[in-house]
Amino acid sequence: MGLAKRIIPCLDVNAGRVVKGVNFVGLRDAGDPVEIARRYDEQGADEVTFLDITASSDGRGLLIPIIEAVSSQVFIPLTVGGGVREVGDVRRLLNAGADKVSINTSAVLNPGLVADAAQRFGSQCIVVAIDAKRADTPSGWGVFTHGGRNATGLDAVAWAERCAALGAGELLLTSMDRDGTKAGFDLDLTRAVADAVGVPVIASGGVGELQHLSDGILQGHADAVLAASIFHYGEFTVRQAKDFMAARGIEVRL
């Protein structure tokens, strides 16, 4: 027995409310962040991730009070991302109660930010989020930004290795081909990245049933699995997901 594989519900936050889109368009409202985080904690979630998807427009400052409220009432790790542009943003989120801060577009634009933030706050709290999609690159997957619209020209596996070398303590890997489809993780992508780096990898994008979660661990070699809609709309509880994974021989925290 040893380290458990983690299940991480993800809350996309838009102007203070939790939402989850289908391929990042057509958002549906799913409720209050504090209530949802507390419910997940009670169900046995190993962490909760908040992604501010309105980072570039109005309502951006609304995330800080949410993190303060959640971290005062929910005592499991909280990862926060979305619109993190500079070391000051990382500090503000950590001070509000985030345990880890996830950096996405800004890591691509300015890789030095990852190194700076890891140096200042420790690798353990710096996550780089990688949005990957099938592309004509050496590994077969490229890195994209802006919800999968902009190609960066970076190879996903090479970028993952670079992020780990820069000091990221964890990678949140989202398949933009699968996100919102409920067709399951891109297992080949997940395995390619998870096997290439020495830091933990969270698989994300495409979970529609419990089998997808255990596939992400057993076939994708992920250290943790992230999902949103299957938990938000009450299709499954985190506890059901853990029971399912445990029955397949995966070590989980029950």
Partner: peptide
């Protein structure tokens, strides 16, 4: 390395006994 030969990641991150 885990008993099944799979590489263990560092940092040691998550819930352990």
């Amino acid at each position: 390395f885990a008993r099944d030969g799979q590489r263990l990641k560092v940092p040691h991150m998550g819930w352990n006994q």
